[in-house]
C-alpha cells in the first residue's frame, strides 16, 4: 500500500517489523507497553534494559534517524516533566554535584522517563512500519467496535479530501486579496470553517447514500481478512514476554 497519504508517519521498508501482520504487531505493542508499565518503580536496571530493547526495535526498522527524530518530539513533555521531578519532589535530600535533589524524585524521574520513552519508542516503531490503512484493518480483525473502525477508516480516507478543500478555499480567499492576519481576519476564518463543516457534513450524507446503494447494513465487510502464522504471533510477543519477566523478577 502506498505511503503518500501516510507520509507523516509510515515509511516503506522490509524489516522484520514491516513484515509482521499489523494485528499481530498491534497486540505485541499493547501487551509490551502494559508489561512495561507493570514493572515496579525504582527497578532501574530492568527499566533501562527495556528502554534499550525499545530503542533496538526502533533501530531495527531501518528508518532514517532524521525521520524518527522528528516523530520523537512528542516525547519532550515527558522528558521535561521527568527532569523537573528531582527538584520539585519532597523526601530525603541528597547531593548531586553542587545541587541538592530529592532522592525519591530521582527514582521517580528515572521511572517516568524510562517507562514513557519505552512506550513512545515502541509506538513510533509501530507507526513507521504500519500504514494507517493497515491499522484500520488490524482493528477490524481484532474485533474493535464497528463504529470505531468506520470512523477511523473514513478519517484515513477523507483527511486528504478535506485538507485539499481547505487549501482551495484559502487560495480562493487570497485570490480576492484577503490576508489572514490580525483580529479582523477572524470572522472570515470562522465563516470559512463553518463552510468547510457544512461541506463535509453534506459529503458525509452523500457518502452514506453511496454506501446504502451498495448494500451497506451497518458494518464494514471484512474484504481481505488478515491472517497470521503462530510463529509471527510468537515473534511479536517476545518483547512483552521479556518485559513481563523483568516485572516479575523485580518483585522477587
Amino acid at each position: 500500500m502506498g505511503s503518500g497519504h501516510s507520509a507523516h508517519l509510515h515509511v516503506d521498508g522490509s524489516s522484520l517489523l514491516h513484515r509482521l501482520p499489523p494485528q499481530v504487531k498491534l497486540v505485541g505493542l499493547l501487551s509490551f507497553v502494559l508489561a512495561v508499565v507493570s514493572v515496579p518503580a525504582g527497578s532501574l536496571v530492568a527499566l533501562g534494559c527495556l528502554l534499550a530493547l525499545a530503542a533496538a526495535l526502533l533501530l531495527s526498522t531501518g528508518v532514517a534517524p532524521r525521520h524518527v527524530a522528528a516523530r520523537l518530539v512528542v516525547s519532550l513533555p515527558v522528558v521535561v516533566f521527568a527532569l523537573a521531578l528531582p527538584f520539585v519532589a519532597s523526601g530525603p535530600d541528597s547531593a548531586l554535584g553542587p545541587l541538592t535533589v530529592s532522592s525519591t524524585g530521582v527514582t521517580a524521574a528515572w521511572t517516568v522517563l524510562a517507562k514513557g520513552l519505552t512506550g513512545i519508542l515502541s509506538a513510533v516503531a509501530f507507526a513507521v512500519t504500519t500504514p494507517p490503512t493497515d491499522l484500520v484493518a488490524a482493528l477490524q480483525r481484532l474485533r474493535a467496535p464497528a463504529l470505531v473502525v468506520l470512523v477511523l477508516s473514513f478519517m484515513v480516507r477523507y483527511l486528504t479530501v478535506v485538507t485539499q478543500e481547505l487549501a482551495r478555499m484559502r487560495v480562493a480567499r487570497e485570490s480576492r486579496g484577503f490576508r489572514g492576519r490580525g483580529l479582523r481576519a477572524w470572522p472570515v476564518l470562522a465563516a470559512a470553517s463553518g463552510a468547510l463543516f457544512v461541506r463535509s457534513y453534506e459529503r458525509g450524507e452523500r457518502v452514506h447514500l453511496a454506501m446504502l446503494s451498495r448494500g451497506f447494513s451497518g458494518r464494514l465487510p471484512e474484504t481481505s481478512p488478515l491472517t497470521a502464522r503462530p510463529g509471527e504471533w510468537a515473534t511479536a510477543l517476545v518483547p512483552a514476554a521479556l518485559a513481563l519477566t523483568a516485572s516479575v523478577a523485580a518483585r522477587l
Partner: peptide
C-alpha cells in the same frame, strides 16, 4: 462520494461483500 474505502480493491469489494 462513491469511493469511501481506503484502497481501490477494498472499495470495489465493498458491494459484493455486502
Amino acid at each position: 462520494d462513491q469511493l469511501f474505502m481506503t484502497t481501490v480493491r477494498d472499495d470495489v469489494a465493498f458491494g459484493p461483500a455486502n
